[in-house]
Amino acid sequence: MNLDWSVVWNNLPRFWDGALMTIWLSIATMVLAIPGGLILAFMRLSRMRLVAKPATAFVEFFRATPLILQIYWVYYVLPAYFDVQLSQMATAILGLVCNISSFNSETFRAGIISIRLGQWNAGRAIGMTDAQVMGRIVLPQALMRVLPALASTWVSLFKDTSLVSIISVADLSYVSLKIRTESFRIFEVLTAMAAIYWLMGYPQAKLVDWLHRRYKVAE
């Protein structure tokens, strides 16, 4: 097996663009999926069944089906049946946001519920309204608890962006596979693709570990 790594060095700019796209997609998704997750979490916690039930259905559905299928579904079904024309990038982000919001909503919901009832009572006892208690006492504490889980979700999201390559969004995977097809240097290009993901993802994984250690919940 004679290897020729020049194909990697020659295409570094394209790999770089792909990596940037991956990063951009992750950031854009998370920026939308955090409020998305919060909205879904509050809907699920609501006492009004008309609000809670659809939210629960949405979350369970997006958590129990594959992301890759969700992306295809959004891509093919939206234009044909709902007369919505989205660019490939927007489609990809829509699919990712629905998916990640669902996971985030579970994280937020667990975080809110985990704050002891006593905190609620303490806040009310001082005379705060429920909204104030939620905003000033419960939510800040819940956010500290969910930070490690959110960080783990971020790392998963980073990997999940690779799936948008199937609808031709030019992320790192798409770019790499295109270079492979053009150059026929299969081993070198695929290994480089894995290596670049590794370089980006490994430090993030270790950072998440650190976050988990730092924010261990002490009752």
């Binding site: 990997k159 799936l163 299969i186 081993f187 695929l190 693709m193 894995a194 993901y197 590794w198 270790k206």
Partner: peptide, 21 residues
């Protein structure tokens, strides 16, 4: 930790196309 960093898609593609080489 490496498997946490590399997407499933990449692992699958590498296993099918590069590993046989």
């Amino acid at each position: 930790d490496s498997m946490r960093a590399i997407p499933v898609l990449v692992v699958l593609v590498w296993t099918f196309f590069a590993f046989p080489l």
